[in-house]
Structures are given as C-alpha cells and as structure tokens.
Design a protein around this nucleic acid. Structure first.
Lengths: 205, 205
DNA sequence: ATGTAAACCGACTACCTAGTTTGTTACTAT
DNA sequence: ATAGTAACAAACTAGGTAGTCGGTTTACAT
C-alpha cells in the first residue's frame, strides 16, 4: 500500500475509534490502550502519529466533530426557506438519530463541554470555537428569516439562537436514559409553540 | 466531644468537600486522596465511614444534592401565585448564583447526569430520581397554573416541564465559559417570550 | 539488490488509584 | 481506673495510566 495512504488510514482509524470511545466512556475514563486494543495497534504507533492524548483529542475535535457539526447542524439551515421549518427539520433529524442511539454530534459537543468545563482550558477553547460557529450560523439563519418576513422584526436573534442551542443540549442530556422517543415528541412540539411566539405578525390581512 | 456528633461532623465534612471536588473536577477525575488531603484525613477514616467511592457519591446525591434541589428549585414554585412569575424568579435566582460562580444545584445535577450517562447505571438511577422529582413538581405547578387560569388549558404540562428543564440544563452548560451574565439575560427574556405563548388567552374582555 | 526512512512493536518507567489491613488513639460506659 | 470499642492513621496491595525508547518491519527510491 502507498505509504501516505497508509499513514492517513491509520490516523483516521485512530481518530474514529477514539471519538467513539471518548463519546461512550468519556475522555478521562478512556485510556489510549483501550483505543489501541480495539485497533490491534501499539503504543509506538500512537505516539508516532500524535504527540499526546490531549493533542490527539484536539485533532479529533477539529477533524471529525467540527466537520460533522457543520454538515449536520449548519448546512441544513442555510437556505432562504422558512427558517422555522429549516431549524425544526434539522433538530428533528438530529433527535431522531439520538432516539436510535446513534452518534448525534450536537450532543457529543455538549457532552464534551460538560466534561472539560473548568478542567482543561485548552480543550475547552477548541470546543467553544465549534459551539460559536454553530451559534453564529443560527443567528444568520434567524436574521435571514427576519429579512424574508418570517420572523418578527423585534426579535433578538442572538437570544433566540442561545435559547435554541441550550434547549437542544439540555433535551439531549435528558434523552439518554428516559423514553427518548416521547421526550423528542414533546420537545419538538414546544419548540414549535415557541416559534409561534416569535413569528412575524400579519397585522393587515 | 460527643462521639456521635464527631461521627456526624466528619461524615458531613467528607460529603461536603466531596461534592465540591466532584463538581469542580468531575467524579472520575477526583481521587479519594484528593478529598482526604483537603480535610487532612486518612484512608482509614474514609473507609470506616463509607464502603466505596460509589456509595460515597450516592450518599452525597441523596443527602446534599436532592435536598438542595428541593429547597432551591421545588419549594420556591409551590405557591398558588402566577406560575410564570414563580418559575421565572426561581430560574433567575438559580442563574444568578451561576453568574457568581457559586454552586447551582440544578446544574450540578445536569453535569453529573452527563458524566455518568451510559457509564454507571446505579448512579444514574439515583440522579434520574432527583431529576424526576423536579420534573413532577414542575408539572404540578403548571397544572395549578392551568386550574387557576394563568395557563392556556390546551397546554401539555409535561411537555412544558421537559422543555423548561432541558433549556435550563442547556443554558447552564453554555454559561460556564462565555459571558454568563449576557447569556442569563438573553435566556430569561426568551423564557418569558415562551411563557407568553402558553398563557391563557383572554378571549372575552 | 540495497540503503534509508517511515511506520510500527512492545517492554519499560514513573506515577496514580481504589481498596485492605494492621496498628494506634481517644472517648465512654461500668 | 480500666476495659472495650469507635474513630482514625498509614503502610501496603494490585491494578491501571500516559508517555519513552531501543529495536524491528515494511515500503520505496536508486
């Protein structure tokens, strides 16, 4: 096999199973040996490609987490259609993967933020960057919605974005152990109730 | 000193600093030695009073966390007044302690739920019990609000409770690193927008 | 074919962790 | 006063952890 390809392959394998294990068992509760065992690789291989456990994790955040958040939570809401529908559908899909116990990257992000909060400033910076990107793009979508006459012009887009993200992170935390399907249904309904409150009023029909 | 009193004192000291350290550094990232060092106590003392780290934590959840959640998040919303004001004021105070970087027990609960999710079913059961108590009492308050004519009678109280808790847990996660005061302000405003959407309509004034 | 460097192996260090055990105080009932 | 026991002290076990290092394989250029 081509050397460069092999290099890329092993690095990506490590990062992929690394993310899976960090996600399911937590960062501090997952050893590098756990990851290597899964791949039948050795310590030498790991420290040849990565300089430390911390740097390894940061590369995962940038290569996997950030990109997935972008493709699953940002791109889908970039259009000029009704922003309420764009966001609803996006959340709906993200929560549906959660119901099926698959990896939902918005949640993974929130989970890691909880784990590193006040414990590892360096990692937190990278996680906050990803969160910020999500927030900024949500604000853009909401501003577009105002411009296109969907959202009431008195609405504070930043506040709405924060509120949406926080409620999403929160519901995902709650969904893990108790009746995720029912929770999803209720949550999505209340999100729509909330949207109703900030939609543009048709004052003169 | 009376022996029984001494026993109680040391146990409570251990639990108190135990909670503080578990909260700031995380459970898996805090060793028993860390806690004992803080109190100048020995392993012997710890294992004389508690059977394991896990049981120690569970006692903390029941003795400290559950009671604080009750006194800070449940009792304050038990009246027959306007439920929106009761809940708003309650959240307002909880988030204010968060701004001042003090221990906010609703958040501590959410934080621990994140940490033990899918990793320790026994501990998760106890944490979920506390969460459930909060949820049930929120539903009660909302039902009272419907009965007393504050909340629209078509409202799904369970869904609203879930939505409120999840958004609270989420905003707390976000508040830790970035401009907590501004986040609090925006969040509280959107909560009130949401409340407006489910308040009882005065159809015949 | 052969030198060379990338990619990897696996034993090793130094340190940390939960839990055990044996020994020592200090209180307290008689 | 003294025996008994509650409340602790501290050394120890057994297992795990991140990171290092000298050696081995594999691929590729010449």
């Amino acid at each position: 096999m081509n050397k460069n390809l092999k290099r890329m392959a092993t690095m990506q394998n490590m990062q992929k199973t690394g993310l899976e294990l960090f996600y399911t068992k937590g960062y501090y509760n997952t050893s590098i040996d756990d990851i290597l065992k899964e791949l039948s690789l050795s310590k030498g291989a790991f420290y040849y490609h990565f300089s430390s456990k911390e740097d390894f994790f940061i590369e995962i955040v940038q290569n996997l987490l950030a990109r997935k958040v972008y493709s699953l939570l940002i791109e889908p809401i970039e259009g000029h259609e009704n922003p309420f529908e764009l966001i609803s559908n996006c959340f709906e899909e993200a929560l549906e993967t959660a119901v099926h116990n698959e990896m939902d990257f918005g949640f993974i992000l929130g989970n890691f933020i909880s784990e590193f909060n006040g414990r590892n400033p360096k990692i937190m910076k990278h996680l906050n960057d990803v969160l910020k990107i999500w927030e900024v793009n949500l604000v853009s979508t909401l501003q577009r919605g105002k411009f296109n006459g969907y959202i009431d012009r008195h609405t504070d887009s930043e506040a709405v974005a924060v509120f949406l993200i926080s409620s999403f992170l929160g519901i995902r935390t709650m969904m893990v152990e108790t009746a995720p399907s029912a929770l999803k249904y209720r949550f999505m309904h209340q999100i729509k109730v909330y949207f109703k409150a900030i939609e543009a009023k048709k004052e003169n029909v």
